Amino acid sequence: MKRESARRTSKTTKLGYNERHAKSGITAPLPSIETFPNQYKGYEITIEIPEYTAICPKTNLPDFGTVTIHYMPNKACLELKSLKMYIHAYRDLGIFYENAVNRILHDVVASCRPVWATVTGGFTARGGLSSKIEAKYP
């Protein structure tokens, strides 16, 4: 019984993933995403970023994908050059897909305070599996 309980509460999986891997990249410093004042209400913006790259924190292999940001601006819009620099900063960052998509959403919301936002990551296949991750605000 004790061994079974210890196995369930272990912070390392059979494949060697641990809490350090899981939290990798979540609080890493990244460039800020700048904004500019929005002049209109009630419209949507979709930004597609087909060159997303990052590093798997467990294997150190590169991850590739397309990140799509879809939002309704409120008082500010995302400035694209700073967004590009922000996304390029992921290139050398060890972070899981799920964390990257949620972190991007968090940082977009913190920057421009949209009415609503969705960030979707479509990640290229590795080993016959591809992933699509979606995070929404609110």
Score class of each variant (00 low, 15 high):
Glu98Trp: 12
Asn60Trp: 05
Ala100Phe: 01
Ala28Tyr: 07
Lys136Cys: 06
Gln39His: 00
Ile49Gly: 00
Pro138His: 01
Arg91Asp: 12
Leu15Val: 08
Arg8Ile: 08
Ser131Trp: 01
Pro29Cys: 00
Arg126Asp: 05
Met72Lys: 13
Ile49Thr: 10
Thr68Trp: 02
Arg3Ala: 06
Glu44Lys: 11
Val119Trp: 05
Tyr97Asp: 04
Arg20Gln: 14
Ala6Thr: 06
Tyr86His: 07
Glu79Lys: 01
Thr35Ala: 00
Gly94Tyr: 07
Thr53Gln: 08
Glu134His: 10
Glu134Ala: 04
His70Glu: 13
Glu34Pro: 01
Arg91Met: 09
Tyr71Asp: 07
Lys132Leu: 15
Asn99Arg: 09
Pro31Gln: 01
Pro37Trp: 09
Pro114Leu: 09
Lys23Met: 15
Gly42Ile: 08
Lys14Leu: 10
Leu80Glu: 00
Ala6Pro: 02
Tyr43Gln: 10
Thr68Met: 14
Pro138Gly: 02
Ser5Thr: 07
Lys136Glu: 08
Phe64Gln: 13
Glu4Gln: 07
Arg3Asp: 06
Pro57Asp: 03
Ile33Ala: 00
Phe64Cys: 06
Leu30Asn: 04
Ser130Cys: 11
Pro114Lys: 06
Thr9Asn: 13
Leu93Asp: 03
Arg8Val: 10
Tyr90Ala: 03
Arg7Val: 04
Gly121Ala: 07
Ile87Arg: 01
Leu93Trp: 06
Thr120Lys: 15
Asn18Leu: 08
Leu61Asp: 06
Lys2Asp: 02
Leu78Trp: 00
Cys56Met: 14
Glu48Gln: 11
Met85Arg: 10
Pro114Cys: 13
Thr53Arg: 12
Ala76Asn: 11
Pro50Arg: 08
Pro73Cys: 02
Lys75Tyr: 08
Ala117Ser: 05
Leu129Tyr: 15
Ala28Met: 11
Lys23Arg: 15
Ser131Pro: 03
Glu34Trp: 01
Ile133Cys: 11
His70Arg: 13
Pro50Trp: 13
Arg20Lys: 15
Gly128Asn: 03
Gln39Phe: 09
Phe64Tyr: 15
Leu129Arg: 12
Cys112Gln: 05
Leu129Glu: 04
Ala76Lys: 14
Gly121Asp: 10
Leu83Asn: 02
Arg8Asp: 04
Ile47Lys: 13
Val67His: 08
Ala100Ser: 15
Val108Leu: 10
Glu134Met: 14
Thr66Trp: 08
Gly65Glu: 14
Ala54Ile: 01
Ile45Trp: 00
Thr124Leu: 15
Arg3Tyr: 01
Glu44Val: 15
Gly94Thr: 07
Glu48Met: 05
Ala6Tyr: 11
Lys136Ala: 07
Asp107Arg: 07
Val67Gly: 12
Lys84Tyr: 00
Lys2Pro: 05
Val109Asn: 09
Tyr137Cys: 09
Lys81Asn: 04
Leu78Tyr: 00
Val67Ala: 02
Ala125Leu: 06
Ser24Val: 02
Asn102Ser: 07
Gln39Val: 09
Ala135Ser: 15
Thr9Lys: 05
Thr35Asn: 00
Asn99Ile: 14
Ala28Glu: 14
Thr9Gln: 10
Ile104Met: 10
Phe96Thr: 02
Lys14Asn: 10
Asn38Ser: 15
Lys58Met: 11
Asn38Glu: 12
Thr27His: 15
Lys2Cys: 06
Arg3Cys: 05
Pro73Phe: 03
Ala6Phe: 14
Phe123Arg: 11
Tyr137Asn: 04
Glu19Lys: 15
Lys81Asp: 03
Ile133Lys: 14
Thr13Cys: 10
Ala110Asp: 11
Ser10Tyr: 03
Tyr90Gln: 08
Asp107Ile: 01
Val101Tyr: 06
Arg113Ser: 07
